[in-house]
Design a protein around this nucleic acid. Structure first.
Lengths: 348, 348
DNA sequence: TTCCGCCGGGACATTTATAGTCCCAATGGC
DNA sequence: GCCATTGGGACTATAAATGTCCCGGCGGAA
């Protein structure tokens, strides 16, 4: 790997060009089939400059171009996989990941390039990367619990289809949390199960429940059976959200929102709201996975990107155990920045 | 390493630049201190284009430029070593080496870029590479036998000086063989010993001897002692020459030369002349290392470059065991070409 | 000491590569 | 059958790379 360090002293522009071409290829892969102009827009580069790259990629047999757009060839896909680690080193993401592991106390951190806060198409990369991470942890007859949210929805859309169907069960981690249908845990569970070739369990529970109703419901045998299945999940994949954004999206009443604000809520995950130190501020009233169940689930994967989610990710990392975090440069850099300045204030 | 294979598909033009810049740095290293214009002439590229490279190398702190010329810095030397293998892959020499190992039945083949037949300065690279190979096999109190010839002379001139003197003994493999003094085995042995910080034994024997005189001489205790030392050498480094060129250079009489021609002599090594199949055609009448001694010497290193020596190298490889061969692309490609066409004729 | 050759570096015209901007025929989804 | 989007071609403006000189200086040989 460090041979690249030396090479880039002889050809300094190598690193840049290699990374940018890789990025082009990677984006084609994630959005195929896609046209030249749309892609240029996506990458934020001029059409002409992209064209030069595209012509080269075509020449090298890494992509095919047709009337419907471009798509990567098998050898292109191989190249993407093989160079993944190299690019990670070259653009400094490897270093960023190491620092994040340290700061957040998360054993595994995967950072994808870009900032989904500024560039929507980055969420696709996050979803794909998270999908690959999930696939690594998969095993026979395992249960995967998923939450809702746009990150998880994207994951279910773009996760690479395994060569042969997996004997997995996908369950929603909690009941419906008042979002758009395509972002609901139930929807995502079914889509993910379809992509993996496994089965899924639905979990139809009304959104906002009073405490007593929730308890009554939880006693129902059918519900109870699913809930127990959920709590015994082998892997849980969840999104991490900004507290207030999520509160508004779920149309919480004004009083609750102002209470959250007052108590300094910054993060949301599994329907729990946390302050900056990871303390629970509020819990949504729906049944399913509880925070204390996390401790017994072998693999907890968190997915969240965008500079705006930096604080939320830090809070979540303090609130409960996360085994693997998939995020983007925007969030990663922002987290480190916040950490550095907080360290400065603490020390000073 | 194979990550470079993939990278070079994404940035082919930079791979080329990497190789050419490496070559520039390498040549500065081998000829330092050297000026811009001389170097351009040496590399066969225009002065201006070299200048761009030189400016970059200077910027990167890989070379220093002074009024006497350019020389590589320590970090430049490190880079040369670290990237040696990478460049070997990228410019296809690694593949060439593998094929040559196969075709010649030589366990280790080192190929340097260029063709010393067309470009004299390549002999310097060969010498340096051979020097590095020799250094690898060196051990305490070992005896190195060397032959004469321009390749060996260059080796003795440019072999990297070990950080601390080596307790080696350098001996000439055979007596004087009628060449210019700087190409004589004796001269080379002393120079090599000086570079390595070891000692050397001289071997003063007249050039052309009748059989009886040689036998008488061989009985002399002083001579005999050196000869035994030679025959017990741990490493022998030798040049391989074209038969007729060597014969003429040594001013053999016309009759012998035409006899060599008639019998199809193509190669010369250790004073032996071989035909294309490796059969001995003629032996120079001087004492020292005999071909049958080779079998008992642990390490036999052959050095020869230039397309013109292809046939000679093939013949030598068949005639006796060679453990390591140091050559250049010119010879290497030429050998493979000849092999392919001979295979074609045999099969067809 | 003097002279000659090679040294690096500056300057500038020319060529070549690169990037921006349109346009067009063709194809596929609706 | 229409419309949007596709890839590819063409042309120009601009930037970069390159060829070709020149100059003052330092070092080694005479």
């Amino acid at each position: 790997m460090h041979a690249f360090q030396f090479s880039s002293r002889l050809v300094p522009e190598l690193t840049e060009k290699l990374c940018s071409r890789y990025r082009v290829l990677q984006r084609i892969f994630l959005h195929q089939p896609i046209g030249r102009r749309s892609l240029a827009l996506l990458l934020g580069i001029s059409e002409r400059i992209l064209r030069a790259d595209v012509e080269l990629l075509k020449e090298q047999g890494l992509i095919d171009v047709g009337p419907v757009g471009m798509h990567v060839t098998d050898s292109g896909a191989t190249l993407i996989k093989e160079l993944d680690d190299v690019i990670r080193y070259l653009d400094g993401r490897h270093e960023l990941e190491a620092k994040l592991r340290d700061v957040l106390g998360i054993a595994r951190v995967v950072v994808v390039p870009g900032d989904s806060h500024k560039d929507d198409s980055v969420t696709r990369d996050i979803g794909y990367a998270a999908g690959r991470v999930l696939l690594e942890y998969l095993h026979e007859h395992c249960t995967i619990a998923v939450t809702g949210g746009s990150s998880l929805a994207m994951l279910a859309d773009v996760i690479p289809r395994p060569v042969q169907p997996q004997s997995v069960v996908v369950v929603p981690a909690r009941g419906g949390l008042g979002e758009r249908v395509e972002l609901l845990a139930n929807t995502i569970a079914s889509r993910l199960a379809e992509r993996l070739g496994g089965t899924y369990r639905m979990f139809h529970v009304p959104e906002s429940l009073s405490k007593s109703t929730a308890e009554t419901l939880a006693m129902e045998p059918l519900i109870q059976e699913v809930v127990e299945h959920i709590r015994a999940a082998d892997i849980v994949v969840h999104g991490i959200g900004e507290a207030l954004t999520m509160a508004r999206r779920r149309k919480l009443d004004a009083m609750t929102i102002s209470e959250l604000q007052a108590k300094g809520a910054v993060a949301e995950a599994f329907g729990y709201y946390f302050d900056a130190d990871g303390h629970i501020i509020h819990v949504m009233g729906t049944v399913g996975l509880r925070l204390e169940d996390i401790a017994h689930i072998p693999v907890v994967i968190g997915v969240a990107g965008g500079a705006g989610k930096a604080q939320a990710i830090r809070a979540a990392a303090q609130a409960y155990r996360i085994d693997a975090l998939v995020t983007d440069e925007g969030a990663g850099n922002s987290i480190l920045q916040a950490y550095e300045s907080s360290k400065f204030h603490t020390e000073g």
